[in-house]
């Protein structure tokens, strides 16, 4: 049966495994599934491999055992064209908003680079960008700024906005608000919810803050000592 989902099937990640050493097991036999429009919250103590799990699902790192399935095809066996499509459809957003943009480039040119990558004709750039800025609630003024002239909250919004230009189906949010102030955190969380209902995007939200997870997610997983416990 064909299903539109992103699925992890009993994946494990072990670092430094070789002939002689067993290596350090980060997580073992982790399975879960996520569909567009849903939020899967991933929490657990720090240093237990939440971020690593996120990167494995995003396809940046390969799992030691097990497979990640995207629309029923295994990541490791994907053809190049399909993989490029996957690369667009599954995006990852990192914790530190200040590092997300090239400090020597204006925000605008960072954003237009993405549009050029998508081979969108130049005429549409302006309208696409405007549309994106409306979604994330920023004015056009920011495009002519450098990243250092913007606040963390604004940069995090822009980071989400730039990802949205790629029209992804899933976004892996790796601690999206832990570098932000409480009031900005609330703004970003609300914005993420709005974007989700508008564009039907599936989130995997990684956070150490239980309150954030509870607020955002439909299902929630606790990653503790290498095992994932799924809580509805």
């Amino acid at each position: 049966m064909f299903s539109i989902s992103l699925r992890a099937d009993s994946i494990s990640k072990i670092y430094g495994a070789g002939l002689l050493s067993e290596g350090r097991c980060v997580f073992q036999n982790v399975s879960f599934e996520i569909r567009p429009g849903e939020t899967f919250g991933l929490t657990g103590p720090s240093g237990e491999g939440k971020s690593t799990l996120g990167r494995v699902i995003a396809g940046i790192e390969k799992p030691t055992y097990g497979t990640v399935y995207y629309e029923d095809s295994s990541l490791s066996e994907m053809k190049k064209t399909k993989y490029m499509a996957f690369r667009r459809k599954v995006q990852i957003m990192f914790q530190d908003p200040t590092g997300a943009f090239n400090p020597r480039k204006r925000i605008g040119s960072s954003v237009f680079d993405v549009l050029k990558l998508l081979k969108i004709p130049n005429i549409e750039h302006a309208s696409k960008t405007k549309e994106m800025l409306i979604t994330i609630g920023l004015s056009e003024e920011v495009l002519s700024r450098y990243p250092s002239q913007l606040s963390g909250g604004q940069l995090q919004r822009l980071a989400i906005g730039r990802i949205l230009l790629l029209e992804p189906e899933y976004i892996i949010l790796d601690e999206p608000t832990s570098a932000l102030d409480v009031s900005v955190q609330a703004q970003i969380l609300h914005m993420l919810k709005n974007v989700q209902t508008e564009k039907n995007i599936g989130y995997i939200l990684i956070s150490h803050d239980q309150a954030v997870i509870r607020f955002m997610s439909d299902t929630c997983g606790l990653l503790e000592s290498g095992q994932l416990r799924v809580i509805e």
Binding site: S183, Q185, L189, V212
Partner: peptide
């Protein structure tokens, strides 16, 4: 008040807008 409302206990009610540079 806005700051306290944006705490998790109060349900992440944000203050609109940005703090001015």
């Amino acid at each position: 008040r806005g700051l306290l409302n944006s705490l998790p206990e109060k349900g992440f009610i944000p203050i609109p807008g940005f703090s001015p540079p």
